[in-house]
Design a protein around this nucleic acid. Structure first.
Lengths: 198, 198
DNA sequence: TGATTTCCATACCGATCGGTATATAGTGAT
DNA sequence: ATCACTATATACCGATCGGTATGGAAATCA
């Protein structure tokens, strides 16, 4: 699989991809120009195109990395024993991502879904599809919770999942517009106070 | 104030501004090109610049119109007698905006706050500032509600306002990514079910 | 009817966008 | 040393961006 002939590349693709992810996360898909990307990645445009295809393919690979590194808590959160514990881990995980770096920033998915309006609706559809699959996993988890008597019967699991997702998306919006870490933390605590008890 | 000499303009500025608002609302500030704007407004670029200044000034005027036409329910919602009624009117008003046109779409403010990443952070700051003022009005309303015994004492009015705002922003994100009107309606009902009772 | 003022239409501006052609430099195999 | 191959660097491509200069056309004044 490895190339043997020809000049070897002078950069580490994974490291370059990680740098690209940071730019996409900060600027969004359309806001990230190739100039910014190549400067952050430390490579030139032909190198980028030879290694990653084009801007859209690069973004998809960055999205894969993002899900693997940043959203792994979502999968593990579903394994918590109660619906409330699931929600708590999701909320705290979201908080950790948004306040992890320097300034709070929204989830990359939220940024991409809202910001891609002009040419890049294929990107938007991609992100929406990925989000939909994790959403349905959350719905199933809450359905199981209700069967286990873990949720009040007057609560619809599907609606509850959408509601929780909306809160996290709203956190993202506020994180992207100057909200402090303390502010976001308060938001998490308040949401947990609201959580339905049986 | 009115011009008397010279050729009168052939279009209605208010009508043109309304058309511009629709484009901004659909595409966001950066996503709306002058070509799209002028075509929708039915005027040429020199006419636009003579009448509205430039793209940014046009957007601010469109934002004024948006607040006047679409967000007037926010002011009146604060006059409801109870905190819960305030929240209900805010949520239903948001729902009405997002599902009012053809396809559900996010609040223009949310779109602008999230999408403006590159050059237009002056736009972003403008929208954030406007949002901040209406947010503080909501905080004051909830503080009054707690004084009136209308909210449980363990609830912080500031956090509650941020929470409610987050839910509405999350509704906007979902509205902009293909959520149906029924879906958004469920979201509103669920949030109201969660609302703290004294 | 001029004279003046303003609007509209066309064509254009420099800058930037995503993407690429070309030529050179560096590698392993022969 | 030469060949086949690939990465890099530079310079460039057409398209589009927001914004304007220019040259009539139209309406109101005298």
């Amino acid at each position: 699989m490895q190339q043997v002939r020809g000049r070897p590349r002078e950069f580490d693709p994974e490291q370059a991809l990680s740098a690209a992810l940071q730019v996409f996360w900060e600027r969004g898909y359309e806001g990230a120009s190739l100039t910014e990307l190549t400067e952050a990645m430390g490579i030139t445009k032909p190198s980028l195109y030879a290694c990653f295809g084009n801007k859209e393919a690069l973004f998809r690979k960055a999205l894969d990395l993002y899900e693997r590194d940043k959203l792994c808590y979502m999968r593990s959160a579903l394994q918590e024993p109660t619906a409330r514990a699931v929600a708590e881990r999701l909320l705290r995980g979201t908080l950790a991502i948004q306040t992890g770096g320097g300034d709070p920033r929204a989830c990359l998915g939220v940024i991409s879904m809202v910001a891609c309006t002009t040419q890049a609706d294929s990107i938007k559809h991609e992100v929406v599809a990925r989000q939909a699959s994790s959403h349905s996993a959350l719905v199933e988890r809450f359905e199981r919770a209700r069967e286990e008597g873990d949720l009040p019967t007057h609560i619809d699991p599907k609606a509850l999942a959408s509601y929780l997702t909306a809160v996290m998306q709203g956190m993202g919006v506020q994180a992207g517009t100057g909200a402090s870490a303390e502010h976001l933390q308060q938001l998490v605590e308040t949401t947990l106070q609201m959580w339905p008890s049986k």
